[in-house]
Design a binder for these strands. Structure first.
Lengths: 126, 126
DNA sequence: GTGTCGTGCAACCCTGGGGTTGCATACCGC
DNA sequence: GCGGTATGCAACCCCAGGGTTGCACGACAC
């Protein structure tokens, strides 16, 4: 999932962020973590691990991924490290997706129109 | 990625669709395919494979995933099978993401408010 | 100071899925 | 009918990453 092949000219201007967000959100455990985090507002890896079916270490790894994706932030508090959700990352990606969707739709309708036009043989009733 | 743990009560009403869409979009090759597809409007696995750095078989598998996620549709045409993008799936997920983001933001601000209030010591006005 | 609790490595296991090759089958043009 | 081409299916390889255990270190309470 880290081996972007060929990299194709970014016609759709795919922001690196979106990539990370998708990868992050693709994992069910990570979505669980986000859910827990958002309803607590604030939590350490240890606390989260308590109420999740995985080890603290696993949670830590997931939090790292989420952090990379800009979906959470961490801050030290004494000997604890507390994480919280950062909705901005999600919003940005959602908007990007909407944009892409629109773009696709537009392209498709153009192509469809062209296809329809081309379909009528030259001898069609104007 | 197929082992949804514990399944947690769907407080955020996570639609099965979103799950699939994230998983689909998380793969770079799949995003490439979508891009190619959308600018052609229409293509068979064989054609796509020609202009991508992978085998036809690989492309086929990816198309299957995209189909599952509702991001493309296929239709037979003679001995060919032509795929095309379905922007609706993306749009739906984008909207869902926006909703979730808003929800998170709301929760967070509530929590923050409560925290601030609680922070002032017991000598608060009854 | 000492025990406890939370964090931060690092090594390691194991499954899933992205990718491949090989072959059988179905359709088209001639 | 026959060759060429597109699809479909199945077996197989390989590695990224999700998960674990074990341990060392830092911070707090007493």
């Amino acid at each position: 999932m880290t081996t972007e092949p060929a990299a194709a000219e970014p016609a759709a201007a795919e922001p690196a962020a979106a990539e990370a967000v998708f990868a992050a959100l693709a994992d069910p455990t990570r979505r669980l973590i986000l859910d827990r985090l958002s309803r607590r507002g604030d939590a350490s890896a240890t606390v989260l691990a308590d109420e999740l079916p995985v080890t603290r270490q696993a949670v830590v790894k997931h939090l790292a991924v989420l952090d990379q994706a800009g979906l959470v932030t961490a801050r030290r508090d004494g000997r604890e490290r507390r994480y919280r959700v950062r909705p901005a990352g999600l919003e940005a990606t959602a908007r990007w997706m909407d944009g892409i969707a629109a773009q696709w739709a537009a392209r498709l309708s153009t192509i469809k129109r062209l296809a329809e036009r081309a379909e009528r043989p030259e001898r069609d009733p104007a």
